[in-house]
Amino acid sequence: MSTLVKNIFRFVLFLALQIYVLNQVPPLHRFVVPYLYFLFILWLPFNLPRFPLLLIAFLYGLCLDEFTGTLGLHAAPCVLLAYLRPFLLSLLIPQESTEQSYAEPSITSMGWAPYALYVGLLTFCHHFLLVFLEWLQFGDFLYFLGKVAASTGISLLLVFLTEMLFNRKAKYRTNQ
C-alpha cells in the first residue's frame, strides 16, 4: 500500500475512533478525557516537508472540530504538534542513518527510548495547549493542571496500547 493511501486510511480511522468511540466514553472523572487522534500527526512520514505538514495538521484538526462543534479548538494544538515535530525528530535521531532508511517514526525506526520521549513530549505539548484553550474559557487553575496531567497519562497509555496492538512494519525506504 502506498504511503498516501495508508495515511488517508489513518486519517479517517483515527478521526472515527476519536469521534465515535473515545468521545463517547462516559467520563470516568472530569479530568480524564481520552485523546488518541493526534497520533496520526506523529506517524506521518519523515520526508514530508514542513509546510505541507503544518497544512495537513491544520486540516486534520479542523475536521475533528467540525464534529465536536468547537471550530479551532483541536486545530491549534495539531498545528503546534506539526511545528514542533521536525525539531524534536532532528534532536532525537541520528540524522543520516535513520531518515534515509525508514519511512516514518516508530519504535523500530527510532529505538524504544527516543520514540517514547518523542511521543511523551509531543503528547504533553498537545494537551497543554488544548486544555489551556479550554481553560481560558473556564478559569480554574487546579482543573487546568489536573486535566493536563491526567489526559497526558491516559493518552500515553492509549498510544502504548496502539503500538502493542498494531505492529507497524518499519519499512525501509526504497527508490520505487
Binding site: 503544518l54 472540530d65 479548538l73 491549534a76
Partner: peptide, 17 residues
C-alpha cells in the same frame, strides 16, 4: 505560516463560541 495557522484557529475559536 505556523503563527498564521495558530492565529486562524484561535480567531475561529473565539468567533464560534
Amino acid at each position: 505560516s505556523f503563527l498564521l495557522l495558530e492565529a486562524v484557529s484561535i480567531v475561529m475559536l473565539t468567533q464560534t463560541s
